[in-house]
């Protein structure tokens, strides 16, 4: 009757608990170290329990000396701009690829497809020159940090794939009702795509929140207040003697926004990808 023998549940729980513990161990250790001041952080043997009392002081240092308030604000603006821009462009591209017939569509599709092989990391050298030529490094750091990354093949494909799975009759019906393509997008497609939009937005938000390399090149290193948060984490760990308490506190503060967003959107995230990768 039941061909798949049920494994004893206890064993699964035990195995999962052990794996979870190992995965969480680095994070737990970071939490513990974040509560230590610089003297306690260098104690041998390490103080693994109880937590120290320097967490507040460490966090205060981050916000007062390293201007984490400004860095969080900067990174939020940049990440939001990237997420919004990417989502809008990807939605429009998906709409064009699925619901329009035009000459050269397949060639244009390849034009977009090919960029999957061209990650920005590789072309940063000439990209830096271009952005400098436009004067963005000096006067418009927000443009320099966002504008080159608005279009991605990944997003266009995600929505193309998702829209292809939506019944075509809906578009016919919309046309008979005299709805414009944009009205169709807002009234029909977007409401049917919230999970995919959320999944895509979450991934892009995490990626732009965590961006490091480009920000390090584009932003002037001597000006604390224009940096992004990951540079702040790096700065918290620099100096002749790494203050590990401060560094761990920086890592935790810098990770809270993407973590919270991930926890909030976890359900949409999982189902968004379950649909799109279901061949």
């Amino acid at each position: 009757m039941n061909a798949l023998r049920k494994r004893p549940r206890f064993g699964v729980h035990l195995a999962l608990s052990i794996v979870c513990f190992i995965m969480c161990l680095p994070a737990l250790y970071a939490l513990q170290v974040a509560t230590l001041d610089i003297v306690a952080a260098f104690q041998a043997p390490p103080q693994l329990f109880p937590p120290g009392n320097a967490l507040g002081a460490n966090v205060a240092t981050l916000f007062e000396r390293l201007r984490f308030d400004r860095l969080i604000l900067n990174t939020t603006v940049v990440s939001l701009a990237i997420v919004i821009g990417k989502t809008v462009l990807a939605l429009l591209a998906g709409l064009a690829f699925v619901y329009f017939r035009f000459r050269g569509k397949v060639v244009l599709f390849f034009f977009v497809l090919l960029t999957l092989l061209m990650p920005t990391e590789i072309i940063i050298l000439p990209l830096f020159n271009l952005v400098a030529e436009l004067g963005w490094t000096q006067t418009n750091p927000n443009l320099a940090l966002t504008f080159p990354f608005l279009a991605t093949a990944t997003g266009a494909f995600l929505f193309r794939q998702h829209f292809s799975n939506i019944p075509r009759e809906l578009a016919d019906a919309a046309q008979i009702d005299g709805a414009s393509p944009l009205r169709f997008l807002f009234a029909v497609l977007i409401p049917m795509s919230w999970n995919v939009i959320a999944a895509h937005a979450l991934i892009q938000f995490i990626a732009s929140w965590n961006q490091y390399i480009w920000a390090r090149l584009v932003l002037p290193p001597d000006r604390f207040e224009v940096q992004l948060i990951q540079i702040g984490v790096r700065n918290a760990g620099s100096g002749p003697q790494t203050d590990f308490g401060l560094l761990m506190a920086a890592g935790i503060v810098a990770s809270l926004p993407p973590l919270i967003l991930f926890l909030l959107l976890q359900k949409q995230f999982m189902s968004g990808f379950a649909i799109t990768h279901d061949k």
């Binding site: 429009l92 064009a96 061209m118 279009a151």
Partner: peptide
């Protein structure tokens, strides 16, 4: 079936993506 009749609009919808890729990926 299920296509919108306008042809030009397809290009216009793709234009931001194509321009951005051209300027910030292909050109560099």
């Amino acid at each position: 079936s299920g296509y919108f009749r306008s042809r030009g609009l397809g290009y216009i919808l793709l234009l931001p993506t194509l321009l951005s890729l051209l300027i910030f990926l292909y050109y560099p």
